[in-house]
Amino acid sequence: MFITFEGIDGSGKSTQARLLAEALGAAGHSVVRTREPGGSPGAEEIRALVLQGDPERWSAETEILLFTAARRDHLERTITPALAAGNVVVCDRFADSTRMYQGLSRGDLRAQVDALHRLMIGREPDLTFLIDIDPAVGLSRAKGRQGHEERFEDMGLGMQTQMRAGFLALAKEFAPRFRVIDGARPAEVVAAEVRALATAALEARGQ
């Protein structure tokens, strides 16, 4: 089963991806936890290119190509082999992030994102958790990390607000696989809800 986590910067999705992977592992599932951009050696190299540097370093069109290249390598080298071996794959971000960050917030490029996705990726997650949070809170959290991968955070609150609305719209568009989770609650409360929903989905598949 392929499970992804989405949300604006600072939503807590990375923490929740880690907590779910740990919980499923403790319950006896074989789990591979990964992330995007990244998750394979080549994709990690592209990660450094797209998440660091000046906010205007790349055009949205160039970003679409870079993220799709990273995702293809990730799919070939990590996700597909792990699923074929019977693992549950838990991934922090996937194509939905590209649909939002490049396809919506940086121009009306959703059609290009989807066309490349169909051509080069060709699969969606089985289950997606959208960790929803107030954009101002998320941006404050993200900037408080003081890391080196803040290129998108540096684009400001307006972008984060647009992203949140876009993710919620995307959850309606792909309703069968999305679960919208209130991320404003304590992490352990969020994790308990995520774990219960993921467990139910796995049981429904006989896993």
Rank of each mutant, 00 (worst) to 15 (best):
R72S: 12
T98K: 03
A84Y: 11
D132S: 06
L119E: 15
M120R: 06
L170I: 09
Q160E: 06
E173R: 14
Y101W: 05
L116H: 05
R123P: 02
L170D: 10
D114L: 14
G138F: 02
Q160C: 02
T78L: 07
R110M: 12
G86R: 10
I133W: 05
V88D: 04
E150K: 05
G103W: 00
G107A: 10
L127P: 04
M100V: 15
I79N: 01
D154F: 01
R177D: 07
V90S: 08
L170V: 11
F152T: 02
T80P: 00
G103P: 04
H74S: 05
P135W: 05
N87W: 00
P176E: 14
M120N: 11
H74V: 01
G107V: 09
D126I: 08
G86Q: 05
R151A: 12
Q102D: 08
L127E: 08
R179H: 04
A111D: 13
V89Q: 02
V89C: 11
A111H: 04
E124D: 15
T128F: 00
C91W: 03
G138P: 02
H148C: 11
A142S: 12
L168H: 08
Q162W: 09
I133E: 05
G156Q: 03
A84P: 02
F94W: 02
G144F: 05
R110S: 13
T161M: 07
S105W: 00
Y101A: 06
D126F: 03
V137L: 11
Q162R: 12
A111I: 08
D73C: 08
L127M: 09
L139T: 07
R141D: 06
L116W: 12
R177L: 10
T128A: 09
F94P: 02
P81E: 07
D73H: 08
G144L: 06
A136M: 11
V88F: 04
P135A: 15
D73A: 15
H117N: 13
A69F: 01
M120H: 15
K172P: 06
I79G: 04
A84T: 13
G86N: 11
F167T: 06
H117A: 12
Q162G: 14
E173Q: 15
R93M: 10
Q162E: 11
M100K: 03
H74E: 07
D73L: 09
G103H: 05
G144P: 06
F178T: 08
L75M: 11
